[in-house]
Structures are given as structure tokens and as C-alpha cells.
Amino acid sequence: MEVRTIKVFTTVDNINLHTQVVDMSMTYGQQFGPTYLDGADVTKIKPHNSHEGKTFYVLPNDDTLRVEAFEYYHTTDPSFLGRYMSALNHTKKWKYPQVNGLTSIKWADNNCYLATALLTLQQIELKFNPPALQDAYYRARAGEAANFCALILAYCNKTVGELGDVRETMSYLFQHANLDSCKRVLNVVCKTCGQQQTTLKGVEAVMYMGTLSYEQFKKGVQIPCTCGKQATKYLVQQESPFVMMSAPPAQYELKHGTFTCASEYTGNYQCGHYKHITSKETLYCIDGALLTKSSEYKGPITDVFYKENSYTTTIK
């Protein structure tokens, strides 16, 4: 009895394709271990004539594949690729409408935090270190965002349907971005203890939790000093293409032309909904596939993004 075979390709990165001759009487799992086709788990399936010449994702289970996976995804987590594939199996079914010149995501599976993050990423200057993220990001900007969303979920250790947080998501993504040249110098002034300067680099240099107003941050924000008295913390120097200011959701007025974009969060910790506000020729609110415009805006804002380049204080 002759062994019926077909020729397929296996890959971990969709760049390096490895030619395989597979036995049609055995499952993919018996031949390769966990195997995925377009995100779908085909591990328990036997090869079919229609699979001839198709590319299958496999887990990096030998040295060659491990090197290829690390170079593309910059992670050695053995569960990463499987999590990416199972997320992709959902995100490829989502709709990605162009809204006001940006790629958004039609609401499904509690994905409003991903839509808000995706919209924000198209408006701030950011370059990702893992080629996987950078490639998928370019495709997302062009309207094909399924891979990018699935990668975000995998890097953030999230599953489809789980509630997510924009600030946490951005923080994970910033860790995989090139923020080497970003720098922030802060000064804390206390009447009792004097003053202390701190220099922050990388992710810490672009994120701040405690106030939404970048102007206020430049002037000074009140913080408790270690001595128990009130101290003032203010920005001395900022070198970065953008800054992200966050605070627990509270009524906040966004003035046209003073910011790049913002995240609105309605609801409580267990259950809520994100919308995205962007400042173009007027203010726009993007909620999944829905767009509304207004000249002014007041609502429960939790993150505001500002364009920056270089700032030095005039406070002496």
C-alpha cells in the first residue's frame, strides 16, 4: 500500500517557510505537534488534498525554529505562539472599519479597549522592536488589523473576551517599542525636605499616572512627601515624541487643539466601556464603527496623549 502524501510549508514567522512532505494517514499533531492554519487549530486533523502548498504555523520545537521565533517575536515564552494563534482565530472574524481616516474595530468580545489602543497607536510616533509587531502594525494602518490585535493580546497575556485596560495595554506595548531616546527629568520640591531631581528613561519617561493635564504637570502637581507634608512635583525636561497622561476616570474637559487623542471610560472596574476622542479640525468621538463630532467635550476621561518633541522648564 502506497503512502499518500502532500507537500506543505511549516513556519513560526510566515517569513521562513520549511518544506514538509506530510503523510495523509496521520494527523498534523502526530507529525508536527500543535499546528495552526489561519489561526485555526488543526492539530487533530489529517492532511487533505486542499492543504497542498498551504502554510501551517507550528510551535518552535527545534533550534532553527526557536531562533526564527525569537528573532521575529522577541520572546522565548513557549506558550506565546499558541496564544497568538488562538487569538487570531477570533480577531480574523472582527470587522476593521476605516473611521475618520483611522483603522478602528467594530465592537465584539469586549474589544473596546483594543480599538482605543489601536486608534491611539496610529496617532503617536512609535516604532516597535519585534519585527512581528512592526509588520502587523503597518498592515493594521492599511486596514488589516487582525494579526496586530492578536499579537497585542498575546504580548499582554490576554484572551479574547476578557476586559482590558488601555493604560495597561499601552504599557505592555511600550515595553516592546523603541523608547531608548526618551528621557524625563522631574523635580520634587518640599518646604521641609528641599528639592530632589529624578531622571527617568524609556517607558517611565512617557507615562504618568495622577493627572490628565500635561500643562498642569509642567506647572506642578501636589504629591505627598515622605515627611508627610505636601510637596510639588513638576516637569523639568521632556525628550520624547509623545507623552501619555493618565488618571482614574473623572469628568474632564478636553479643549480642541490642546491634545492629540484621549480615552474615555464609562462604567466601573468590573464592567465598563471605552471610547476614543481625537482632536482634528474639530473633536471626534470614535466608538467602534461609530463616529460623532463636537466642538467641545466633557466626560469621564482616563488617558490623554500629547505630541511632544523637546521641553525644558522655565521655572527657576
Rank of each mutant, 00 (worst) to 15 (best):
V3C: 12
T5F: 10
V8I: 13
V8Y: 03
D13S: 10
D13C: 06
I15C: 06
N16T: 09
L17K: 14
H18I: 03
Q20P: 08
Q20D: 07
V21C: 14
M26Q: 15
T27E: 14
G29A: 05
G29W: 11
G33Y: 08
G33L: 09
T35N: 10
T35D: 15
T35A: 12
Y36M: 05
L37K: 12
L37G: 07
A40T: 14
I45G: 12
P47F: 03
H48P: 10
S50C: 12
S50D: 14
E52P: 09
G53I: 07
Y57I: 12
Y57L: 07
V58W: 09
L59N: 13
D62Y: 10
L65F: 08
R66L: 12
V67A: 14
E68Q: 09
Y73T: 02
Y73N: 05
Y73E: 04
H74N: 06
T76Q: 10
P78Q: 11
S79D: 11
F80P: 06
G82N: 14
G82M: 15
Y84Q: 02
Y84D: 01
Y84C: 05
M85V: 08
A87H: 00
L88I: 04
W94V: 04
Q98N: 13
Q98K: 11
L102V: 01
L102N: 11
D109M: 06
N110S: 08
N110T: 05
C112V: 06
T116E: 04
A117K: 03
L119E: 03
T120E: 06
L121A: 04
Q122H: 03
Q123N: 03
I124E: 00
E125T: 07
K127T: 09
F128P: 04
N129D: 08
L133R: 07
Q134V: 09
D135W: 08
R141E: 05
R141G: 10
A142N: 15
A142E: 14
E144G: 09
F148E: 01
F148W: 00
F148K: 06
F148N: 02
C149P: 06
C149Y: 06
C149H: 02
A150G: 06
I152T: 08
Y155I: 00
Y155R: 00
C156P: 02
N157Y: 08
N157I: 00
K158E: 03
G161N: 08
E162F: 05
L163N: 05
D165Y: 05
E168C: 08
T169G: 10
S171W: 15
L173Y: 06
L173D: 00
F174E: 07
F174K: 04
F174W: 03
F174I: 02
Q175M: 04
L179T: 03
D180R: 08
S181H: 15
S181G: 12
S181P: 04
V185W: 02
L186R: 04
N187M: 15
V188K: 12
K191E: 12
T192E: 15
G194Q: 02
Q195G: 06
Q196H: 13
T198I: 15
T198V: 14
T199K: 03
T199E: 09
L200K: 09
L200G: 08
K201R: 15
V203I: 13
E204Q: 12
G210V: 02
E215R: 05
F217K: 01
K219R: 14
G220S: 05
G228Y: 01
K229R: 14
Q230W: 11
Y234N: 02
Y234E: 05
Q237E: 09
E239K: 10
F242A: 02
M244F: 00
M245K: 00
S246R: 05
S246Y: 15
P249M: 07
A250W: 02
Q251L: 11
E253S: 08
L254E: 07
H256M: 14
T258I: 06
T258Q: 11
F259L: 01
T260E: 01
A262E: 03
E264V: 10
T266R: 06
N268C: 08
I277C: 01
I277H: 02
T282S: 12
C285I: 15
G288K: 04
G288V: 03
T292P: 00
K293N: 10
E296G: 10
E296W: 09
P300E: 13
I301R: 07
D303E: 04
V304S: 03
K307S: 12
K307I: 06
K307N: 06
N309E: 15
N309C: 14
S310A: 06
Y311D: 00
T313I: 09
T313P: 06
T314Q: 14
I315R: 15
I315C: 15
K316A: 15
